[in-house]
Amino acid sequence: MQPPTATYCTPEGDSHAFTVVPDAPRYRTTDGTTSGPSAYVLQAGQIDRDRPSPPKLDAQGEPTALSRLRMHLTGLQDDINSFLTAEMQRAKNKKQKIDDTQEQRATGGSTAA
């Protein structure tokens, strides 16, 4: 079975391809780094009993085909989440920069007292 892939593209023509590196540790677990419980509920005292089940192993101790797919998708989802978080931060910084420029213009070119 071919590992899954994903592609991100925008109306502006930007694109980014996501691929699985089968031997990398992030593609060999079903418990992703970005798909855990929210920090908010953990701070409120939540005990996490909703972890994903570990991969199922066959008689040779190797993950079954479906478990391998689950692990690959977990890593891929982490990649996508990290990428989108970075994109959002980039967009936020860009907006902040524009807002600052507009504010500077409105206050006559200087924000210093």
Partner: peptide, 18 residues
């Protein structure tokens, strides 16, 4: 969820998914 807390969409979805 713990006392005093409601359930958030993201964590509820994670529960169902897992």
């Amino acid at each position: 969820t713990p006392p005093g807390e409601g359930f958030l969409p993201r964590d509820t979805a994670r529960h169902h998914r897992n």
